[in-house]
Design a protein around this nucleic acid. Structure first.
Lengths: 346, 346
DNA sequence: CTTTAGCACTCGCTTCCCCGGAGTGCTAAG
DNA sequence: CTTAGCACTCCGGGGAAGCGAGTGCTAAAG
């Protein structure tokens, strides 16, 4: 049972007005926009309310959109709101930063999105899992060395490790060869198992074991979450109550793994109020966009706001941003060698 | 002009009561604790107010400590409040984490402190400046390589870099030698200058230049700030006003370099309300402790709270924490070779 | 000279009430 | 189907009143 065009028009106006004013909207305001009398609008609104698209906080206040109403709006009614020149420039220049660590790009991405849309944002990268693609152990002095680990998903990490027993440069070279020969592309558990089988002099064994422990740590945090702009919620009337704000902030700082991720690879997704599984998000909405990082990883960037969030604007900005990121990572990571069979060192 | 012992006792009680209740304290409550009549206390409190140690929000409300009062309290009156067994354990176990990246230890430190004292906390490391101690370039494939940089202050960073021109393993080995010979312990500017002088085949030159750019970036962010627990302020009555909270949070997320650092190497320092230079901190207090990281760096950990913050408790926890950190870094970094003249690779 | 009891006074906070205004639903007429 | 009119509802703001915690002062007691 389709709504008439006029009902949709009214719904759209109500939502947009409510989004910008955060107060129940009355029939008069709509009537003014549409050139009919307020009574007409009242009748229409009463029907929309009966159908579940609008709600009234109490008899004789204006109407407020229901989640169902927002859903219709997001699916059919809203028009992508174009970005201002300034905004596209802001995004572009933010992405100009030298492709440093993947981490920092994503942390930055969260910040930029958040500062543009004025809602808290989060970014998630899910590595393709996988194992280590390449090891290198570098001598520093006899008691310590640098372990460099490159993973299948293209991350490079390094750390200074210490052994209680002396280890020479030759020891490390031998270990590097061993690692690249027998410890490549394994899960941490498998690496642990192979470690047990290894028979080596104590110094080498210790270095090997520390390196593998380190690699395990790296593989373990293949899912990382960056959040930004949480403080923005304090400017929203729906979070005037400090406790509400606190609850949502806790989700951002402590329950990051509870933040929603899109069900499948769908480009852009919107979760409205109660559509959220997470209890703490029941009366907030989330807009998410995903993008590719090279060929083996997928990133997600999401924005959390009140159900009254400006979907049109957020969606437009987010999708532009996600496209830019895909393009950015396409360029650089395209140069990465294919994952398989490309060990050429030692 | 010294205060009498009884006046000090009263001041102490007033402050402690105000700290825990956040409401002006009246003479009756104090009288109950001291076994004299409320009238006596009233007289004493009137004098304390006259001397500037107490203030009254308006005639006929209780008294509230003034910054001057807090100052006296911090300097003379408060007694270090012992940590509960549980708290020491919490701190110890938090520090048990494998000495991964220095960054993560400090980020963690901020979080732990913040969660213990229930105020926002921040951690700063100031590197000793210095330059790069050791370079390593590792082959990945012909178009890309890994640059590993270890700085004088003991940080190890690495990143995948791309060249548009092919670079072989031999090229990289040669460059590594060159770097460790001529680009060690320089400022980014000096490195740039030497790069200009270098005469090399294009592939090598490009790799060299990218590496140096990368090293420059690393040296540039030798001062890092980690913040944690900002949301804790939302639980405090003095930040019920969302705007106040927002302002302070902005300082934490955007104005991190404005956070106070101790004037000299003094172990523990307290800034009370207007003693803060920063406008946004004028009615908050800051407790800071510093600690050594190895022999070449110094770290700072600070807690921000309302002037009514629980100085005794925070100071005790912070100093315990700082001592633990010093001990922790002493152990590990003690094994680092002295900075000078210890290049032994190539 | 200090302490204490007593008392009048101040002042912020809460509660209650009243009222205006915005908005509604309904009815009846165009 | 639209519109004007009207009675009704209910939120929110603005006093007014009362309460209670606390003060300053005075005078008496130790």
């Amino acid at each position: 049972m389709e709504l008439t065009d006029r009902k949709k028009e009214i719904l759209k106006l109500v939502i947009e007005q409510y989004i910008s004013a955060a107060e129940p909207v009355g029939s008069k305001a709509i009537a003014r926009e549409m050139g009919v009398s307020s009574a007409t609008i009242r009748n229409e609104m009463a029907e929309l309310a009966e159908l579940g698209y609008l709600e009234q906080p109490h008899t004789s206040a204006g109407r407020v959109p229901s989640p169902k109403g927002y859903r219709l709006y997001v699916n059919e009614l809203m028009e992508q709101r174009a970005l201002s020149l300034q905004e596209t420039e802001e995004i572009n220049s933010a992405l100009q930063l030298r492709m440093q660590e993947l981490d920092s790009v994503l942390a930055k991405a969260g910040q930029v999105v958040s500062s543009i849309v004025r809602y808290p944002a989060y970014a998630i990268v899910a590595g393709s899992g996988g194992g280590v693609r390449q090891f290198n152990l570098l001598p520093v002095d006899l008691g310590s060395f640098i372990a460099v680990v490159m993973t299948d998903d293209g991350r490079v990490k390094s750390q200074l490790l210490h052994t209680e027993v002396d280890v020479t440069g030759e020891d490390l070279a031998a270990l590097t060869a061993l690692l690249n020969d027998r410890f490549i592309q394994l899960t941490p558990q498998e690496m642990g198992a192979r470690l047990m089988e290894a028979v080596l002099p104590p110094g080498q064994f210790m270095a090997l074991s520390k390196t593998i422990g380190y690699a395990g740590d790296i593989l373990a945090d293949s899912v990382q979450v960056y959040t930004a702009g949480t403080k923005n919620i304090l400017k929203l009337p729906e979070f005037r109550d400090a406790d509400k704000a606190h609850e949502l902030m806790s989700l951002f700082t402590e329950g990051q793994d509870l933040l929603p991720a899109p069900v499948n690879g769908a480009g852009m997704q919107v979760l409205i109020g109660p559509e959220n599984v997470n209890e703490a998000l029941k009366d907030t909405s989330v807009v998410m966009a995903s993008y590719d990082i090279g060929e083996h990883m997928r990133g997600l960037i999401g924005v959390v706001g009140p159900t009254r969030m400006d979907y049109a604007s957020v969606a437009a900005r987010l999708s532009y941003f996600a496209e830019s990121l895909t393009r950015l990572f396409g360029q650089h990571s395209g140069e990465l060698p294919p994952v398989k069979e490309t060990k050429e060192n030692e």
